[in-house]
Each structure stands twice: as C-alpha cells, then as structure tokens.
C-alpha cells in the first residue's frame, strides 16, 4: 500500500495530540484518582488547586484530537465513535462529572456538599481513565468491523481480558504520574505522605506494565507484527524501559522533576507504541483484515489534509506559546488564596 505524505503526517500529528493529551490530562486525572488520599478539607483543596488552572486546557487536547480525527480520518471517527457508543457516553458522563465536581465543590462550605463532590471527583477521574485504557485495549485487539465499515458487535464485545488489563494499566500509570506531579506541587507533611504514594503507585504501575506487556506479546499478535517490519521501533521500547527505570532512580535521588519528565516520556512512548501496533491501520477488523480502516481508505481528501496541515502549522505555535505562558504563570507550590477553588 502506497502511503501519501499527508496521510502519514496526520497519523503522526494525531499521535502527537494523543500523547499531549495523555501526558497533560494524565496528571490531572491522576490527581483525581488519588484525591481521597488527601484527608482534610485543606489537603483536598490543595489537590484540586494544583490542577485548578490547568485541567481545562489539558482537556482541550482531547477535544482537538477528536476534531482532528474527524477532519483527517472521518471514517475512523464515525466507526469508532458509533462503535464505542456506550463506552464514550459513559466517558462523557465521567468528564462532565469531573468538571462539575471541581467547579462546584468550593461553592458551599458544608461537609456533606464537599464530600459529595470529593467522591464525584475521584470516581469520575478513575472511570474516565479506565475507559480510555479499555478503548485503547479494544482497539488493539480488533473490533467486529464489517465490509460496510460499520461496527457489528455489541457493547459487551468490547470488553475482554486485554481491554480490562489496559484499563487498569491506564489507572496505574496516571495514578503514578499524578503522584509525582503532586509531589512537585505540595509541601511539608502532605508532601511526605505523597512521597510514599509515589513508591506505591510506581509498584502498581510496574506490575501492570509487566502484565500488559506479557499478555500483549502472548495473545495480541498485532501488537508486535510491525516490529518485524520496522526494527528501529525497538529503540523506542528500549528508551521507554530506560525512562521507566529512571522514575524510581529519580525518586530515590530526590529529584522529582526528573521523575516527572521520565514519566512524561514513558507515557509518550506508550502512545508511540500504540501507534506502531496499529500502523498503518486506525481500526482493525477482527472479522477480516480486508475490512480494516487504515490511514488511506479512511482518510479525508488530499485537499482537506493539506488545509488542515496549514491550520495546524499556523495554530500550534500559538497553542504551545500560551500553554507555556499558563504553565509558567502557575508554576511553583500550590497556594490557597481567595481565588482558589
């Protein structure tokens, strides 16, 4: 199959958007997963305010990923979103639940009200992460896509052992990522406690990493096929292992910023490996490989891909600039003030 440059470019750009989303929203989802570990009201406010100014912008990466998938590979968007119907509506419910919990929690100072939104924040964050992981796992295992490009399975066909494993893996990964982020943003006794969480979530993550890898090697053939054709991809695997190994090292040496960068790199590497596992497909049919949706047969026209590339080239430097400005403005430890949640 001949793959035109623009189709390849958009496959890569989608990967970049997905990696950007996973890294950025990953830590704020992780903070949500760990939220109930904060005991007092003040600690919980610190947790929420550590991501308060940032989570909304982080979520825009997902919205833009969705828009870009729609624009560049609209058949994949149509098949995946209608195929994952209930999964995605549950995901939407979780994303709304998160936004609302953060926005409303601080508005009333009664324990019942705050507890409600504490649990809402925790469960919505955990559910959203789990569903992302399930979606990735189902996509890698293949979907019942027919000769009409439509999904022919049911909601329950999407659930399997591998999607369940990747779902839990995602929760472990974001919990670890979030705990390192929280370590960077907290001080004093709370920070000491968070230090212990970094170790525990790393252990959880490492265990899930091994389980996911072994299961993928044994029973998801698509996960490794491309490594035969593109042996240079092993470099990313090795770099990923190094990044993961660097996380405990950096925690041990008390250099949390390095640990955080390592965990960012590791997440990026996982998104890359997900891309390699799929390439050149976007959605794999478990019925017949001829029904796969790939980056050529599911793509928009050359004209649209080109226009979109220009829009991305014009827009993304701005996006990166003000993302940088915002992160710089809100750098440093969390301070609870009159404008905080």
């Amino acid at each position: 199959m001949e793959i035109p440059f623009l189709n390849m470019l958009w496959f890569i750009l989608l990967g970049v958007l997905l990696a950007g989303y996973a890294i950025l929203d990953g830590f704020d989802l992780g903070v949500g997963i760990l939220h109930l570990g904060a005991k007092t009201d003040r600690e919980r406010r610190i947790f929420m305010n550590s991501i308060g100014p940032l989570w909304d912008g982080n979520e825009v990466w997902l919205v833009t990923f969705g828009g870009a998938l729609f624009a560049a590979f609209h058949d994949a968007y149509a098949t995946a979103f209608s195929g994952f119907y209930l999964t995605f509506w549950l995901l939407l419910a979780a994303l709304i639940g998160r936004a609302v919990s953060m926005e409303f929690r601080s508005k009333l100072d009664t324990p019942g009200w705050r507890k409600l939104f504490d649990y809402g924040f925790f469960s919505a964050s955990t559910l959203a992460t789990l569903l992302f992981g399930v979606a990735v796992g189902s996509t890698m295992s293949g979907l019942k896509i027919g000769d009409d490009m439509e999904y022919h399975g049911t909601f329950f066909d999407l659930l399997g052992v591998f999607p369940a494993i990747t779902g839990v893996f995602a929760v472990a990964m974001f919990a670890m990522h979030g705990s390192i982020y929280l370590y960077l943003k907290t001080e004093g006794d709370l920070q000491k406690r968070v230090h212990g969480w970094m170790w525990r979530t790393f252990g959880f993550f490492l265990a899930m990493f091994v389980i996911t890898t072994v299961y993928a090697l044994v029973s998801v053939p698509a996960a490794t096929d491309n490594f035969r054709d593109y042996p240079w991809c092993w470099v990313v695997v090795i770099l990923n292992v190094l990044a993961i190994a660097n996380i405990p090292r950096a925690i041990y040496l008390n250099r949390p910023a390095y640990a955080f960068i390592s965990s960012c790199c590791s997440i990026a590497a996982f998104v890359f490996l997900f891309g390699v596992a799929l390439y050149p497909n976007l959605l794999v049919s478990s019925i017949d490989p001829a029904y796969n949706l790939n980056i050529v047969n599911a793509a928009s026209s050359r004209g649209t891909l080109l226009i979109m590339a220009i829009i991305a080239a014009v827009g993304m430097p701005f996006v990166l600039t003000y993302t940088g400005i915002i992160y710089w403005t809100f750098r440093g430890k969390v301070e609870i003030g009159k404008f905080s949640y």
Binding site: G57, T64, S301, F318, I325
Partner: peptide
C-alpha cells in the same frame, strides 16, 4: 467529514486553547 470535521478541528486549535488557557 471532509469539510465539517475541518471546521471543528480549527475551532479546537484556534478557539478552545485560547479560551481555556487564558
């Protein structure tokens, strides 16, 4: 998708990042 999707993606890149960031 060829047209509508492009407008949605442009909205994300040009508008949503600007709004949510600032």
């Amino acid at each position: 998708g060829d047209i509508f999707g492009a407008a949605l993606a442009a909205e994300g890149i040009f508008a949503f990042f600007l709004e949510s960031g600032f």
